[in-house]
Every structure is written in structure tokens, then in C-alpha cells.
Simulated assay, not measured.
Amino acid sequence: MGKAIGDRYGTEGFEDNRPPFQRVLNESWPAPEVARALKDVEVWRQIEVDVRVVLDQAGPVTLRGTAVRWTRLHVCVLLLDPRLLVPYVWLNPSDVRRTEPARGSRPGS
């Protein structure tokens, strides 16, 4: 299994019966040379998150995703939402929050 998003999650079937594509208005990419050099962290270090995404037609929405890469100023989040052209988005850390664990759940269970 590859370590990059594209190695683990293909786009086959992503276009089938999907709603119209919407642009993410609050994307925030690191510099191109930084973005190209970053790789997904190990699966055990990835973080489940809720993110605030501003879609060009739907407006602000909260989506559940997984933070897979980050710098101090940017977070790359895997989002499996059919309105997105690709299954990930770079955001400012202020738009990303760790997912609260379910009540009564224990870490590792």
C-alpha cells in the first residue's frame, strides 16, 4: 500500500452520480515547493478532524475528514465529499479541529 493519497484513494467512480462540483473558497496551499515535498504521515499518526469548508454554492459547511499532512501554517485533509473535484483540500489550521471522541469510548478500542 502506498503512502500518498493518490496511491491509496483512486478517483475511479468518483464522478458517478455526483452532485455538481463546487470550488472550495477557503483553500490555503503551502508554497508549491513545500507542498510537493510533503508526504502523508504514517496512518497511525493521521488525525480525525472536523473542518470548516466554504463551498462556492453551498457556503460554509462542516465536514468530517482525516488530516494526512501538515505544516505549521497549513493542513491537508482527506475529505470524501462528492462535491469536491479531488478528495483532499489544504486549509488553514484555524479551519481544522480534532474530532471529539464518542462518549464512553476508550482510546484504542
Rank of each mutant, 00 (worst) to 15 (best):
G2H: 08
G2Y: 06
K3N: 15
G6I: 03
G6C: 08
D7C: 07
D7H: 10
R8K: 11
G10Q: 02
T11I: 12
T11K: 13
E12R: 15
E12P: 01
G13T: 03
F14Q: 11
D16Q: 13
R18E: 00
P19Y: 01
P20K: 02
R23A: 14
N26R: 07
S28Q: 14
W29Q: 14
P30M: 09
A31I: 10
E33D: 15
V34N: 02
V34A: 05
D40H: 08
V41A: 15
V41Y: 10
E42A: 15
V43N: 07
V43H: 10
R45F: 13
Q46H: 08
Q46K: 11
I47Y: 06
D50Q: 13
V51P: 04
R52G: 03
R52K: 14
P60W: 00
P60I: 02
T66K: 14
V68T: 15
L73R: 15
V75C: 09
C76F: 04
C76A: 13
L78G: 02
L78C: 07
L79Q: 02
D81R: 02
D81H: 06
D81N: 09
R83N: 07
R83L: 02
L84S: 02
L85E: 13
L85A: 14
V86Y: 13
P87L: 04
Y88F: 15
W90Y: 10
P93D: 07
V96S: 02
R97F: 07
R97I: 01
T99V: 11
P101I: 00
P101Q: 01
A102Q: 13
A102K: 11
R103C: 03
P107C: 05
P107M: 00
